[in-house]
Design a protein around this nucleic acid. Structure first.
Length: 260
DNA sequence: ATGGTTGTTCCACAA
């Protein structure tokens, strides 16, 4: 089964792109969506259901917002990241399909470095790491898919120096990512495409970044050991980034053998 | 150091 992640940068602005992408050959069995930028009422649930999809939506007005869309029905497990009852930002959704657990994350951007937002980013990643430990403890196949807002290494950015001051490339951000890898999570794309292979998933709207391939790899799928054992393929679908009025992100995906 | 772009909302903020 194929599992994908896509930051759509407004599901209302990208409604037709999403429907077109899901209707094509090779569509995933499950897709994690980020940056819906709308409450549940703005999500095109009826159209997706008419096309044969199930969906769980955790929305928020104007900002953030995550969803899971799948061919088979899901059972919701969580719609907020544990660890801070005061946190109202819609950045986490977790569900199960049979044995498989799938989580959708929209990790905080954290810019500017040194401010409140950067502190929130690191605190959120700490909460995620603590929750991720509990997911590993289930010993089930688990996929955490999303926009991590972390550029894991210098091989995941078009120009390390140009991005040196950005929150996505800070040593603390990269340490938060590596903490998950040390726990036992596998980066589905990177494990099949060793450095220095490039697999950008995001290109800024500014400065002709797409045309110049000035990208970053910040969208990824992390696999628990039981899921990584089933990994057969992974990739980035650059096509939607080239469509008219696109999201600044494009989908990343992986394939697991034996549907869970 | 600045300006470059997009989406949502309301004339700014987040990315």
């Amino acid at each position: 089964m194929r599992i994908a992640t896509w930051n759509v940068n407004s599901v209302r602005a990208r409604r037709q792109h999403l429907l077109d992408w899901l209707a094509r050959d090779g569509a995933p069995a499950i897709v994690a969506l980020q940056e819906l930028k709308t409450e549940e009422a703005g999500f095109p649930l009826g159209e997706l259901q008419a096309a044969g999809w199930h969906a769980l939506v955790c929305g928020q007005k104007s900002y953030n917002g995550v969803a899971l869309v799948s061919r088979a029905a899901m059972v919701e497990r969580l719609r907020a990241l544990p660890g801070d009852a005061e946190d109202t930002q819609a950045r986490y959704l977790e569900a199960e399909l049979g044995e498989l657990i799938v989580a959708c994350v929209y990790c905080p951007n954290g810019n500017p470095v040194g401010g409140e937002k950067f502190a929130y980013k690191l605190a959120w990643m700490d909460r995620l790491a603590r929750h991720a430990e509990t997911l590993l403890a289930t010993e089930r196949p688990v996929v955490i898919a999303g926009d991590w807002n972390i550029c894991p290494t210098g091989d995941d950015v078009w120009d390390e120096r140009a991005m040196a001051a950005d929150a996505l490339c800070q040593p603390e951000s990269r340490a938060a990512w590596r903490r998950l890898l040390w726990q036992g999570w596998t980066d589905a794309w990177r494990t099949l495409n060793p450095s220095p292979a490039r697999g950008y998933t995001y290109w800024d709207y500014q400065g002709g970044a797409w045309q110049r391939d000035h990208g970053l790899r910040i969208d990824a799928l992390l696999l628990s050991p039981a899921a990584a054992e089933r990994l057969t393929d992974s990739g980035v679908d650059r096509t939607p980034r080239g469509w008219d009025a696109p999201s600044d992100h494009t989908p990343a995906w992986c394939t697991l053998e034996h549907g869970a």
